[in-house]
Computed example of a mutant assay.
Amino acid sequence: MAIVIKNMSDLKKQVDVACGKAVEKACNRLLGILQQLIDTEFYDVFIPDFYHRTYQFWESATTEMLNQTCGKVFMDKSKMNYNSYWTAERQMLAANIGSHGGIITDETKEHKFWEAFIEFCEKYAVDILKDELKKQGLKIK
């Protein structure tokens, strides 16, 4: 079904809808990268001997639309429930310095998932968004 645009207001609405879809899809793609980096830069470099992984950390990676055309990818502290000593904040800080339950090895300290994610975003986030905007039918240079 063709969309009829009669004035600038109609045009703005259609562009906003297309941009919103593109931003949401771009955030979801970046979320996938973040989860992949949590796997490769955190979970895969250390096998615990004395605790069982719950994967709450991986599952806390999430995305949220802040408004129609702005989204974010982040670690949701409310999705991590460890104990009073090992809080979500402590988990996030520890994970990014290569600490696994307080254990750091020469190998684990070389793997910083959040720094790797920021580096990826700096290199590719704009291209991912442009790709998603093109998929919505917008011409992007």
Rank of each mutant, 00 (worst) to 15 (best):
K21M: 13
Y124I: 03
L93W: 14
Q56W: 08
I128V: 10
N83Y: 11
E107S: 11
A95W: 06
D76N: 13
A88F: 08
S78M: 08
E107T: 13
F113N: 12
H111E: 00
I118K: 15
N81Q: 15
L133H: 05
A88P: 06
M65Y: 08
A61S: 10
K79A: 08
F42E: 02
E59D: 15
T62K: 02
C19I: 13
V73Y: 03
N96I: 06
N7G: 05
A95M: 05
D16V: 00
E119S: 15
E24F: 01
C70G: 12
N81P: 10
A61V: 05
Y124F: 13
K79G: 02
S84Y: 14
M80E: 01
Y43A: 07
N83C: 09
N67I: 02
W86A: 10
Y124L: 00
N96A: 04
K12I: 07
D76H: 11
F74D: 02
G20R: 01
K123A: 07
W86C: 04
A94G: 13
V15C: 04
E41C: 09
D131K: 10
V73H: 03
L129V: 02
I140E: 04
S9V: 11
E64C: 06
M75I: 15
K79F: 10
S84P: 01
G71L: 02
W58C: 09
A61K: 01
L66W: 05
D131E: 15
